[in-house]
């Protein structure tokens, strides 16, 4: 197996795990969102990597080339990026509101304030 040639995938895995780890381990709400974003970005990379065909060029018809990279994953990723942006927007606005309500954005402080009913 071509371990080094497939370095893209290693980056994907690294980013995915990093993002996931940040989401789980950090208490700060915004840091969690950032981790989520990194996690989502790794998936974008995965898709784009999928689309590249060896020896292929950009998918615009050109008579000098006969192999093109796959444009579909790019389209998918555009959609996913938009989804990611929307998620960030909702997430961040929630954090703003939480800050207004609790005056903190640290999760353990919020837990302290709210005792389990």
């Amino acid at each position: 197996m071509d371990y080094f040639g497939l370095y893209n995938y290693w980056i994907v895995i690294f980013l995915m795990m990093t993002g996931f780890y940040i989401v789980i381990s950090r208490d700060n709400l915004i840091k969690k969102l950032i981790g989520l974003n990194i996690f989502q970005t790794s998936v974008f990379l995965l898709f784009i990597t999928m689309g590249k065909v060896k020896g292929g060029t950009a998918p615009i018809i050109n008579h000098h080339f006969d192999t093109y990279s796959n444009p579909l994953p790019h389209v998918l990723i555009l959609t996913a990026i938009v989804v990611g942006v929307a998620t960030m927007a909702v997430g961040l606005s929630l954090v703003v509101r939480i800050n207004e309500a609790y005056h903190t954005i640290e999760e353990d402080d919020i837990h302290l304030v709210e005792e389990e009913p």
Binding site: I98, A101, E114
Partner: peptide, 11 residues
């Protein structure tokens, strides 16, 4: 707590 619940669900 609706806000934190929504946030948790979001994540």
């Amino acid at each position: 707590r609706a806000l934190t619940s929504a946030y948790q669900y979001l994540i």
